[in-house]
Simulated assay, not measured.
Amino acid sequence: MAISSKTLRSVAGTGVEAQALAARMVTLQADAGLTIAMRMPILMKGALGDSHGQHEAAKALTEKVSAVMESGFAAGQAAAMFWWGLALNPLAPLDFTEAAAKVANSTLEPFSKRTSANAARLTARKR
């Protein structure tokens, strides 16, 4: 049985999205670990009354809430774009795997952006 060129393009597109998602997850995990390690002493000082530590805790909370909100909107938008594309072109080949990878990738974007910025900011402070 021969494989069509549409199938090959679909598999290639899914592979690219899956690779991007895997790379984002690895980078996110590394940056999150570094951020946690660098933030813990600051947060401990904040628990003992240090204003800088308390400011860092408030900043962390605010960032997490805004990242969750932004992530929810991004996931909804990516899913809506898939369904609108399907509704406007019902004869197009479906690739749910690629669409799911795009939704996951767009969902992680706000967290990835903030985590890498925090890791860079907190490691630069120590130098």
Rank of each mutant, 00 (worst) to 15 (best):
M1W: 11
M1T: 13
A2Q: 13
S10G: 10
S10K: 08
S10F: 00
V11N: 07
V11F: 09
V11G: 01
V11L: 15
V11T: 06
G13R: 02
G15M: 13
V16C: 10
A18L: 15
A18I: 12
A20T: 05
L21V: 11
A22Q: 02
A23H: 06
A23G: 10
M25E: 07
M25R: 11
V26G: 08
L28V: 04
L28H: 11
L28F: 10
L28C: 07
Q29L: 15
A30G: 06
D31S: 09
A32Y: 10
A32G: 06
G33K: 09
G33E: 09
T35W: 09
I36Y: 02
M38G: 00
R39V: 03
M40W: 10
M40G: 00
M40P: 01
M40T: 13
I42H: 02
L43E: 01
L43Y: 10
K45F: 07
K45H: 13
K45W: 01
G46I: 04
D50P: 04
S51K: 13
S51C: 00
H52Q: 15
G53S: 07
Q54W: 05
H55P: 00
E56D: 08
E56P: 00
A57V: 05
A58W: 03
A58F: 09
K59S: 13
E63H: 10
E63K: 07
E63M: 11
K64H: 10
V65Q: 11
S66A: 11
S66Y: 00
A67K: 01
V68M: 09
M69R: 11
M69D: 03
E70R: 07
E70V: 01
S71M: 14
G72Q: 10
G72T: 05
G72K: 08
F73H: 04
F73G: 02
A75V: 08
G76L: 12
A78Q: 09
A78G: 06
A79V: 04
A80I: 02
A80M: 11
A80H: 09
A80R: 10
A80V: 02
M81T: 10
W83S: 09
W83G: 02
W84C: 08
G85K: 14
L86D: 12
L86T: 15
A87P: 01
A87G: 04
A87C: 02
N89W: 02
N89P: 01
P90W: 03
L91A: 14
L91T: 13
L91K: 14
L91F: 12
L91Y: 05
A92G: 04
A92D: 13
A92W: 02
P93E: 14
L94R: 15
D95L: 07
T97V: 12
E98R: 14
A99H: 01
A99S: 12
A100P: 02
V103D: 00
A104E: 07
A104T: 03
N105V: 05
S106A: 14
S106D: 12
S106Y: 12
L108Q: 06
P110A: 01
P110I: 08
S112Y: 15
K113P: 00
R114V: 12
T115F: 09
T115G: 04
N118D: 15
N118P: 12
N118T: 04
N118G: 05
A119H: 04
R121K: 15
R121F: 02
L122A: 03
T123R: 05
T123M: 08
T123C: 07
T123S: 12
A124L: 10
A124F: 00
R125Y: 06
K126Q: 13
K126H: 10
K126I: 10
R127S: 14
